[in-house]
Design a protein around this nucleic acid. Structure first.
Lengths: 173, 173
DNA sequence: AAGCTCATTTGATGTATGTCAAATTCACTT
DNA sequence: AAGTGAATTTGACATACATCAAATGAGCTT
């Protein structure tokens, strides 16, 4: 891709320790993050409870969605889950790159499309499946998730409680 | 927009009666539909039960998602809900227009982005809200939906049963 | 207006999952 | 290796919602 040089020149790379906060609620970083190594999650607070919305692992993106796409202060926190190497690109740079390089613009569209499809699959999974089925769907997509993310966050991502998840995981039905 | 003439020349317009089937499961229309007037819904069958996934009203798009974006036969049915005027554009035309007109490409990206954001909001609503809250969220977005769509479909869209929805709607808490 | 069909409501009961509290296990630190 | 705090499991109980069945109501057709 012809614009790689330019991407590299405006991307920033950061190292994050385990469970370090990358974006706080109310901030406006206007950045998209790319997980080079490690993992991160986006979460929000509902009545004081921490609810995970999104996980990102190697080669995936994560973004404070309302801030990046709607120019509002972030409703989400973003937090690393393991020691991670993360690239960031500002919204202004993304915009400029997309205007100057057709290739980059296509890539961005592709990433957004895939994200949309993955949200769509998640809705189907949440709409009428029970806790066990939802958990098994997640495991099918990410078999290693239980080794990398604490169960509390997996539970809230699935829309169930920690206790229910624990019982589901119990061997023997 | 400079490409309007060309869009018009390749778009097709159809009239659909109430509850007419626009796309059947297993078909590969590879088309995106734009609701000029009326409304439509996308649904799938889970264990024989009809589950609505998506509603579209005037000036909105609806698409057999797995077919259009993933080139698989459609997992969804799409059905008009009222007498409707609906434009369709083939995937090939969309692709060509996006390649030839930067403006059209931007528009497409914008539509996909908005769809992604709306799915995201829906997940938040399904993740930890109870039946009443989910229903009220929907009403806030689409106050007229109960006049236009039967309650069964609203219920399945919300991931609750028809009976629960009916009880929620009962006046006096 | 009567009759039919389909949509919605109401009622009785069952169940998956939530809540709260306590016990246990795990992972670090010293 | 022991000690400490956090993560996970287990238990007892509560509840929102599902299910099944029947009653009512609304919109067409004749």
């Amino acid at each position: 891709m012809e614009c790689i040089q330019e991407i590299i020149s405006c991307a920033q790379i950061h190292f994050f320790a385990k469970e370090e906060m990358i974006v706080q609620e109310g901030q406006s970083p206007e950045k998209i993050f790319y997980i080079q190594q490690g993992s991160a999650r986006a979460f929000y607070l509902k009545d004081g409870r921490d609810i995970t919305d999104w996980f990102a692992f190697e080669k995936e993106f994560i973004v404070p969605i309302s801030n990046f796409f709607l120019d509002q202060p972030s409703l989400h926190y973003i937090q690393s889950q393991e020691e991670s190497l993360i690239l960031s690109l500002s919204k202004a740079d993304v915009k400029r790159l997309a205007e100057n390089y057709r290739e980059f613009d296509r890539l961005e569209k592709e990433v957004i499309t895939r994200t949309m499809l993955s949200l769509q699959r998640r809705i189907v999974s949440m709409q009428f499946e029970n806790a066990r089925q939802k958990y098994e769907n997640l495991l099918a997509e990410r078999p290693d998730i239980t080794q990398r993310i604490p169960l509390t966050h997996i539970a809230s991502y699935l829309g169930i409680t920690l206790e229910t998840l624990s019982r589901i995981r119990k061997p023997g039905k």
